[in-house]
């Protein structure tokens, strides 16, 4: 690994200032993706800015039908949170299934979203729940945040501070893990809200997380798992690799959606 200048600012403004003064800086949240990337030499920043001490970024709050999760909140904390478990149990389930126990003790929601790995779990919840990504300078609706594989609409130096999840009527998440890496080969987050059903699939799309409109249409008509068997999921733009080709991923999107709906309906 190439060496870099490490800093651990205590506030958002300090972090942004360090970033502004560096040649090629990267923020580090939980580091569970960034450190492997640095080890492999896939990124060689001059500066790594650790957000671990920025007090504004941690914590979970529920109020007025919104669950707000600070960007540096670890997956294990979200998974174990009674507040999240009561308000959006599917979100706690999702967090409890990311990586493994050790990864969940370090990995954060903000880091996951800033990285936007096409196989990460959190993007499915953010898009499925139509959450708002809050940064140090603005608020981004989920639909405008994700910008393809490993790409987001974050500007250079911009820091995610929190994510605001509207509490749905009901929701479910089902993940089919890659047999080797255990990342999502297909993960589907289904949310039923007053304004309709949203279905977001991760792990499957060539451009990262996306909404599956054919399934949303079917579920808006009938929010049950069984009728979904007749829905054909288009294979266009789905990923193919040694573990799953586009046809299998398309099929799994349907199966995982049905399982997520069953969970949302309280039938596992």
């Amino acid at each position: 690994m190439e060496d870099f200048t490490y800093s651990r600012p205590a506030s958002l403004s300090d972090a942004v200032a360090v970033h502004g003064n560096a040649d090629d800086a990267m923020y580090m949240a939980g580091g569970q993706t960034l450190i492997p990337v640095l080890k492999q030499g896939l990124a060689m920043p001059t500066d790594v800015i650790d957000l671990g001490a920025v007090w504004q970024l941690d914590g979970i709050a529920v109020s007025g039908g919104t669950v707000t999760i600070g960007a540096m909140t670890r997956h294990a904390v979200v998974a174990a949170s009674n507040d999240v478990g009561r308000a959006i149990p599917a979100l706690a389930t999702l967090a409890g299934g990311i990586g493994d126990a050790q990864v969940r003790n370090r990995g954060t929601i903000g880091g996951s979203l800033a990285n936007n790995d096409p196989s990460a779990d959190y993007p499915a919840a953010v898009l499925g729940l139509n959450a708002t990504v809050v940064t140090d300078r603005r608020e981004l609706a989920a639909g405008g945040y994700f910008d393809g594989m490993f790409a987001t609409s974050l500007e250079p130096g911009e820091i995610i501070t929190a994510v605001k999840f509207p509490v749905p009527e009901k929701a479910g998440y089902a993940k089919f893990p890659n047999p080797a890496s255990r990342y999502a080969l297909v993960g589907v987050f289904v949310a039923k809200t007053a304004s309709g059903v949203r279905v977001a699939a991760t792990g499957a799309g060539q451009d990262g997380v996306f909404r599956v409109t054919v399934l949303e249409d079917a579920l808006n008509d009938d929010f049950r798992a069984a009728p979904l068997r007749d829905v054909t999921i288009p294979e266009d733009n789905l990923m193919t690799d040694m573990h799953a080709d586009a046809a299998y991923r398309a099929h799994l999107i349907g199966v995982m959606t049905a399982r997520a709906v069953a969970r949302a309906n309280g039938r596992d």
Partner: peptide, 17 residues
């Protein structure tokens, strides 16, 4: 790390300050 299991290959030593 502070009582929680972590993978020490995926953490910088400086982060353990």
């Amino acid at each position: 790390l502070n009582g929680k299991a972590v993978k020490s290959c995926t953490m910088l030593a400086v982060q353990a300050d």
